[in-house]
Design a protein around this nucleic acid. Structure first.
Lengths: 369, 369
DNA sequence: GTGAAAGCGCTAACAG
DNA sequence: CTGTTAGCGCTTTCAC
């Protein structure tokens, strides 16, 4: 049989409750001698607390429910990693469930996790469009990360897409480009219009008139969409000298379209992607892109959720997390330019999005008991 | 206050134990009327069982500990997905912990998961070299998946690397190649020598003498290693007409080395990779490769572990899971050879995202054990 | 400061 | 077939 707290108490010659207090309630007044005796007995016997029993009694499981569309995605594992790294210090663990882009599976997952008495939920790339749907099933706190639709609801941690797009365009402007095309993804995803806004803003701030003929809207986010969208732009009488793509896969399609048209990237046309997917560092040319701050978003969502669980926060405002520019070879990379750009970008760029506040690394979360 | 079993029992006018049996013990003999009354009361009250209480009492948590080096890897999420899909039907959930390629963190993870009373462990790509190390900490059953070193210990689910390499070489032989080079990864990883054995076997069976000058051993598994290793092979007086690379990233390095030497892939030299990483379907030419059966390995490991938990299996022999050949463009693809031209001609450009979704489209595994 | 006692919500003997 | 009872291992009043 496994060692229980009763064994420890007996070995230390104290009562069960004293043993419990010695081990878990550091603030409880208690003689040093007794405490030491218990701790030593526990150590000596190799005592491991039973967290299931503790959860039942304390009505607190130190477990989070993490609901993702699928764990096998480019972003999800990084977000999860950010969550795990943060909650680990507080003794929390996460149970991850896949919802397969099916809102019904999401609500089912909440049900199942509720049975396991999780203390809260993190919903990654959720397809659920209203927070009320969750409140109907569970009264536990929850936060959304990287929400795909209807992004700006409370308790969501989002990428600052406008800022990211702004960074990308600014980089191209800094390299002297003036006719910059935009191959966007489907506008149904909330990222697309917001990135477009960043594109428009950056051009406007630079005093450049936005030419709608330089914006193409393929149906989806796939390589072939980037390819076709770019072909359209190249057919213009005054084609762009640079292309900003809505994501890295579109950017790759763009590069292939340019190359197939007999031109070179970056010598003839520069290309910037978005997301910093793995492929960007393997293709030729390696793609300059905006890093989606997945780990950071995971970390922040965990921080917010733990605060909510402790009751220190009610309905947090949406938080926008900025990505950063990663300079590679698809825009004509040069050390001088990259250095300057990096330094300048930090404070130059702010994308005001109504109702949202920037994330600032505020007071660190205190350790929960 | 939450609805408990006592509430249900009261509402149904039966005792607590009857309510429990009606809801969870389907095989217990019981009048239809009583059972229906309980089920209806539970449904009506919106009763959700408390799994923490159940775990405590039943000494069975329906929770698995999944220890991975990091969740942010090309293989791990797929393996996890395979595990999740399988255990889901049996009511199990998994808690995933990262060990960061640190054996001490692995054993610490086992400790923490033990406190949570997990029923068993799955260790993915574990750095732990002996199973005894685990037995010292926990008496719960465990199985290794995709073990990196000292692979052939009991209760491990591994990729059949020899078979995979054999498939790759066989494909090249079928296309008429006779001088086939091998750019292997570091022999410190157990996959490398085994893949090499498959290479040797396939050539031998075809009556081709293995030429050691056609095998290069770069230090690592990176793109630059593949590049340099291939350069060495190309310098031979009789260079190979085809190259088998130890993984996809090496294969990409090989392709670049060949292209930089003024030759074309596949017209001048064919290349086969290994692992079916995402980049294989994005680079030009798209890389023919061997798919590492991650989902399947995850599924099988879960199946084995659940059997061990049920006591139906003691020390299972290691299980080798075969991968499969994925024909793309880097070997001189032809419709006839591939059989199904589905993802080749019509859609030269395809996104991994659509691939990822395909994976999760419904359960492709039957419940049969 | 410490101990006794009362459960958290549930399952599983054991009776009947 | 159904009910009574005794805990699973722990935390937390409430006394002393």
């Amino acid at each position: 049989m496994r060692i229980t707290l009763a064994d420890v108490a007996q070995a230390a010659g104290v009562s069960l409750s004293t043993a419990s207090r010695a081990l878990t309630n550091a603030s409880h007044p208690m003689s040093q001698r007794t405490r030491r005796a218990v701790v030593e007995a526990a150590h000596h016997l190799g005592y491991r607390p039973n967290l299931v029993a503790r959860s039942l009694r304390a009505a607190r499981s130190l477990t989070l429910g993490i609901i993702v569309e699928t764990i096998a995605s480019p972003f999800t594992p990084l977000i999860i990693r950010g969550i795990q790294d943060y909650i680990d210090e507080f003794g929390y663990h996460g149970i991850i469930l896949n919802a397969n882009w099916d809102p019904e599976m999401e609500t089912a997952a909440i049900d199942r996790l509720s049975e396991r008495q999780v203390d809260g939920f993190i919903l990654v790339e959720s397809y659920i469009r209203s927070s009320e749907q969750i409140a109907e099933i569970s009264d536990k706190p929850h936060v959304f990360v990287l929400r795909l639709f209807n992004a700006l609801c409370p308790a969501s941690v989002l990428e600052d897409n406008q800022h990211g797009a702004y960074l990308a365009i600014q980089h191209l402007l800094g390299l002297g480009h003036r006719r910059i095309g935009f191959v966007n993804g489907s506008l149904a995803w909330s990222a697309a219009p917001v990135r477009q806004q960043g594109y428009v803003d950056a051009l406007s701030h630079a005093g450049i008139k936005v030419d709608p003929r330089l914006i193409s809207h393929p149906d989806d986010w796939l390589e072939e969409d980037g390819y076709k969208g770019t072909q359209q732009l190249l057919e213009q009488e005054a084609p762009p000298t640079a292309i900003f793509a809505g994501n890295d896969v579109l950017a790759l399609g763009a590069i292939y379209a340019i190359q197939d048209a007999g031109m070179r990237v970056p010598q003839d046309i520069a290309v910037v992607g978005y997301d910093n997917r793995e492929l960007t560092m393997h293709v030729r040319p390696r793609i300059t892109t905006i890093e989606t701050p997945c780990m950071e978003m995971g970390r922040i969502s965990a921080k917010v959720l733990l605060k909510m669980i402790e009751g220190q926060m009610e309905e947090p405002d949406p938080i926008l997390v900025p990505g950063r520019l990663i300079v590679r070879d698809s825009c004509g990379y040069s050390l001088k330019e990259a250095g300057k750009a990096d330094d300048a970008n930090g404070h130059l760029l702010r994308s005001p999005l109504s109702g949202a506040r920037k994330h600032s690394d505020g007071p660190r979360h205190t350790k929960a008991v």
